[in-house]
Every structure is written in C-alpha cells, then in structure tokens.
Design a protein around this nucleic acid. Structure first.
Lengths: 115, 115
DNA sequence: AGAATTCTCAACCAGATGGTTGAACGTTCC
DNA sequence: GGAACGTTCAACCATCTGGTTGAGAATTCT
C-alpha cells in the first residue's frame, strides 16, 4: 500500500499550487485534456521546463496522464484540490469574521453599538 | 505603493501552506495569539527554525506581529486564506462533478439511467 | 549591576526548485 | 528506411528551503 498520509498529500498539493505556471496549467485543463506540447505552447519557456511542471502536478496527483502513441494526454484530477479546499474552509469563519467586524464597525459609526 | 499583484500573493500563500509546521502554527493561532517561544514549544525544532517559519507566514501576510517589550505576539491574518480558498473554489464543480459521476454510476448499477 | 529571558542574526550545510541546452528515445508518416 | 514529431533524459547552474549552532541585542527581574 503506497497511500500517503493526508498531511503529506496537502504538502504536495499546496507546493504544486505555489507556482503561477502550474496554476495556469490547471486552469487550462478545465477546458479539457491537453498534450505536453499543446500545454507548453502559450508559455515563454522551454518544452522541458513545462514538462517538469507537469510532472510536479502529476506527482501531486493533480493530473492524470494517458499515453497514446507518442502523445501524452493530461487531464485534471481534482480530488486533491477538494482536500486542499476543505482544509482552508476550516478557517472560513476567520476571514468572514473579519468582515463581520467591519460590518459591526460600520454599524457602530451610525448608531451606538452594544458592549 | 508596495501592493503585490494577486498572482504573487497566491504564490506566497500556497508556498507558506506547503509545510506542515506552518499549517500547524496557523491552526494553533486560531485559539488566539501566541509568542515565538510559546508557539515553538511543542515542536521538536530549534527556536530559530520556528522563528523562520513564522517569518515565512508573516511575509505571506498570514500573520501579524505585535512587539511588546521582548515578546512578539503573533496573530492570525486570515484574508489571504480567503483569497487562496476563493481560487480553489473555482474548481469546486470539478471535484463535486466527479462525485456526481460516481453517484450516477451507482444509480446506473441498480436501474437504467437516462442518457 | 548582573542574570535571565525573548528573540534575531550570521554562517554553514544538504537538498529541492526552476530554468537552460543538446542528445536520445519511441512513434508516425512518406 | 529515413524524416519529422512528441516527449523525456542528462548535465549544468543559480537560487531557495529547511535545518543546525553559537553569538548578540533588547528587555525584564532581583
């Protein structure tokens, strides 16, 4: 069994998301699968550099690769994104809480605030 | 004006989240602010190592530091987490879609599914 | 004043990351 | 068979990361 612990999985997912080229690759793959050359085309980077970014995404289980002859078709594997999002969601009350504070502050400025 | 572009901000946020010690620090800070020594205590790491992790979080604007005499009080700055989450949410349909596929598959196995 | 506490700095190290280029491999087309 | 295509490999380089240790600065306690 090669299952990785959830913590390590999150490490890899967030690390993979930390580069703009890789986020852009994921965004492009929402439109459907693509080949290495096709995905690399819009970037001002060597093909090999993009290929390495793709490998990082693949190692993080964010991409699936289907080899068909000489072409490699990459497609989105969204499950780890769901896990990364779930982790962040546990902080939701905090960033929303700050909005509540602001709201309270605004309310306070046009009428006395209790407490 | 030192405002950083949104893309760079996301780079820093995800990179900061990619280490288990830093995620744990954020989790601990949900309970309230803490000092460097206090935050470092549970980790089997040098104080300086933890101090550097704190700096990474601070550089990513995930922490605020209030210096009071010799003590530095760190507290959560959740806004960038909200932005990181918002980016991930744009993929929500994809990981939820896969669940729908599974659901459809299950439905199909106990009764014919239309189209 | 002197000691203890809190935190950062400087230097160092090993390994990862992000990029390049030229060569090589496997597949497809003529 | 040979050329073109799609992709990866190998080597190299600069920079970043995550850790260590010993020293130093500022603050507080007695």
């Amino acid at each position: 069994m090669v299952e990785r612990s959830k913590g390590v999985r999150l490490d890899d997912t967030y690390a993979a998301l930390a580069h703009p080229v890789r986020r852009e690759l994921l965004t492009r793959l929402r439109e459907g699968s693509g080949t290495v050359t096709g995905l690399a085309e819009p970037f001002d980077l060597s093909l090999w550099a993009v290929s390495k970014h793709i490998s990082v995404l693949e190692d993080a289980s964010l991409l699936r690769r289907r080899i068909e002859g000489r072409e490699h078709h990459l497609s989105l594997e969204p499950a780890p994104l769901g896990e990364a999002s779930a982790w962040l969601q546990t902080y939701r009350e905090f960033w929303e809480g700050r909005l509540d504070d602001l709201e309270g502050l605004l309310r306070g400025s046009r009428g006395r605030r209790r407490r």
